[in-house]
């Protein structure tokens, strides 16, 4: 193995020779042991890895988990429920509610009136039919 080859392998696989592919490992270990240049290259590569490893602390924000799970739960709710629970619509819904209630009650009342009119007319016609039958029977008697 030459210094250039060893340097190239360090750049491809990093300074931890124990994790290199097995066919290269033994040869690389031997080269780093017997060659001064190999030792220097390996030391420089280890220092480089340490330099990069120095900057790896990345804390995960706790609120992020809750935010993700909330999004999923919201996506899984029925559309109408999401729409109703949307905070922006609540005041508007409250304002509309008496209006809707008024329409429903009004409609129900008019339905009731119509039903009672039908009943009155039915009774009237029923009386008329009875009256006609009475007339017919009187005429027959005569």
């Amino acid at each position: 193995m030459t210094a250039d080859e060893f340097s190239d392998l360090l750049e491809r696989h990093g300074s931890n020779i124990a994790e290199w592919p097995s066919p290269l490992r033994n040869e690389a270990h031997s080269y780093a042991r017997v060659s001064d240049q190999g030792r220097q290259l390996l030391a420089a590569s280890i220092a480089f890895d340490a330099l990069l490893a120095d900057s790896t602390d990345v804390p995960t924000p706790l609120r992020l988990r809750a935010r993700i799970l909330k999004r999923i739960a919201a996506n899984e709710s029925p559309v109408w429920w999401t729409w109703i629970t949307d905070a922006m619509w609540r005041p508007a819904l409250l304002a509309i509610l008496p209006l809707v209630l008024g329409f429903v009650l009004g409609d129900m009342t008019s339905q009731l009136d119509s039903d009672s009119t039908d009943a009155t007319m039915f009774l009237a016609f029923e009386d008329l039919e009875n009256f006609a039958e009475l007339n017919e029977s009187t005429a027959a008697d005569d």
Binding site: E11, R12, A44, F48, L51, L52
Partner: peptide, 22 residues
């Protein structure tokens, strides 16, 4: 190949700090 190019670039740019680590 990507790794080798990245490491080469960083070694060049961070040479000053790398010698401090040595």
């Amino acid at each position: 190949s990507l790794l080798a190019r990245a490491r080469r670039t960083l070694k060049r740019q961070l040479a000053m700090y790398q010698s401090e680590m040595c």
